[in-house]
Structures are given as structure tokens and as C-alpha cells.
């Protein structure tokens, strides 16, 4: 089990949904997403503040992916409201894109562009702020090498990978490149949808640590997790069951009873 390294304690979280910051980084209130039969999300409310590391737990089908999709703006809820850094999603396309540029998502399937080099992939995170000319030039010329080198260093990769096509990398390298791409985006809200699902245990804990390390007072992390045994580095955990929030409390206070209620007594993959 990795242990969270000693670091400045983040502001303690007094209670569910209440952040000590003035503006929650992400705020959902009464979010409902319809589904077949029962709603995929049923009046879900939560708030996450800067510097928080929040794990999202729940059995499969509980609505974790839907919640993340609502959080990054991919999925429009049928009712309820969503606020990013205190502001609702903008109506105008341009303003909305500016908001979304501040939200970084680590996808389970990484969604790297296979045909492009590592450098081009890293740069693709900057496209939201780049105009046409740079977007096209990125396909032809290595741009921003220094910044990319630094991003790779942060995920323990060497700069020699910059010119490699992504399709030539190993699984672990790809995961790290995806994280480096997030770093290049420099988002304030980091969302991750089961990033560890298909990884071997050693790699999973390394990667989790890497993600947790990226949280700074001006950046929050919401990560959906299928293994409650990896909760150690998180500040808070939210349990989701049948589209509803079952619990929302400090990670350290999660006990076996909470988990049993969440998973109906069947704990998923608690280690190999």
C-alpha cells in the first residue's frame, strides 16, 4: 500500500458538501440524469474545493462515469445545476470552451492520438488556447519542446520520448504521457474515470501516487476508484449507489460497514 507522503495538510474538510474555500472548484446540486428504468444520477449534490483529493466509490453501474461526464461537461443533466469555480456553464461556445479548458480529464482509455508523436500529443492539450496557425504547425513541427520536456520529467519520463509516436510506447509509458498531457493543459479541476482499472497493482499504485502528487492548493482531483483499498492518499470519499450519494466523508473515516453498505457486502478487487 502506498502511503501518502508527508505534505502540507490541506484545509480540513468539516463536512459533506461544504468547502472552506469561498468558491467550490466543482459544485453539483440536485443533478439528475435519466436512464433506462431508474435514473443514472438521482438528485446528486456535492462540492469539491481547491486542493482536495476526492475518491468516488461505488459498484459498477452506480453512476460514477455519469457523474464524471456531467462534471466535465460531456453529459447534460436533465435537471439540477452545475457550477465550475462558482460559475454555471456558459451559454456562448467560446466562453464555455474557456471554462472547459480549465477542466482536465484523464480517460480510462487515455484517448491519445496514436498517429501523433508524444510531443504533438502533449501539445494537443494547449489547443484550447492556441489559434489555427499553431494548431496546424503542431502537426508539422516540434513546438514548445522545453515545456513538454518538463511535463515528461514530472511524470518520470525522459525527453528522448518526445519524438516517438505514441503507438510505439509501452502501457505504463502511455499512462504517464496521458498524465503529462493533463499537466500541459494545467487544469484547475482534474477528473479521472477509473484510471487504474486495467493496470497491474504495482503500476496502479505508482500511477495513483503520481496523480495525487499533482494536486496543489489551486487544483482539485475527483477520481473514480474501483478499489477501496487504495483510498489511503485521499482526503475525502464519496460513495455512490444506484445513482444516489450514500456517503460523503473524510477518507480516513470510511469503515468496513460503509463499504459493505455500498457494495452489498461484496468487496470488489481488494488486491490481487
Amino acid at each position: 500500500m502506498p502511503v501518502a507522503p508527508a505534505r502540507e495538510p490541506v484545509l480540513p474538510n468539516p463536512g459533506p458538501g461544504v468547502s472552506s474555500q469561498e468558491l467550490p472548484w466543482l459544485e453539483l446540486s440536485q443533478i439528475t440524469v435519466p436512464g433506462r428504468g431508474r435514473p443514472r444520477l438521482d438528485r446528486v449534490s456535492l462540492a469539491i474545493g481547491g486542493g482536495e483529493r476526492v475518491a468516488l466509490l461505488g459498484p459498477s453501474g452506480a453512476g460514477k462515469s455519469s457523474l464524471l461526464a456531467v462534471a466535465n461537461g460531456q453529459l447534460k443533466p436533465s435537471s439540477g445545476s452545475l457550477r465550475w469555480l462558482g460559475a454555471p456553464p456558459a451559454r456562448s461556445g467560446r466562453a464555455r470552451r474557456r471554462q472547459q479548458a480549465r477542466i482536465g480529464t484523464l480517460w480510462q482509455d487515455l484517448r491519445l492520438i496514436e498517429e501523433l508523436s508524444v510531443q504533438q500529443n502533449l501539445n494537443s492539450a494547449r489547443l484550447a488556447t492556441w489559434g489555427w496557425p499553431r494548431a496546424l504547425l503542431n502537426l508539422l513541427w516540434p513546438l514548445d519542446t522545453a515545456a513538454n520536456r518538463e511535463a515528461l520529467a514530472q511524470v518520470d519520463l525522459g525527453a528522448e520520448l518526445l519524438g516517438q509516436p505514441v503507438s510505439a510506447l509501452s502501457g505504463g509509458q502511455r499512462q504517464r504521457v496521458a498524465i503529462a498531457r493533463l499537466l500541459r493543459q494545467d487544469p484547475e479541476l482534474l477528473l479521472a474515470d477509473e484510471p487504474l482499472a486495467s493496470l497491474d497493482p504495482r503500476l496502479a499504485s505508482e500511477l495513483l501516487q503520481l496523480l495525487l502528487d499533482q494536486v496543489t492548493p489551486r487544483r482539485a482531483l475527483l477520481l473514480s476508484l474501483h478499489r477501496p483499498d487504495l483510498l489511503a492518499g485521499f482526503d475525502r470519499a464519496i460513495g455512490l449507489r444506484q445513482g444516489q450519494v450514500l456517503f460523503d466523508q473524510p477518507a480516513s473515516s470510511i469503515g468496513p460497514a460503509d463499504l459493505a453498505a455500498l457494495y452489498d457486502g461484496e468487496l470488489p478487487g481488494s488486491g490481487p
Binding site: R97, T105, A125
Partner: peptide
């Protein structure tokens, strides 16, 4: 979808 989600036009 990933790029669009990150605010790219």
C-alpha cells in the same frame, strides 16, 4: 471527444 471536452474548438 477528449479534445472537445478540454475546451478545444
Amino acid at each position: 471527444a477528449a479534445l472537445r471536452c478540454a475546451g478545444v474548438a
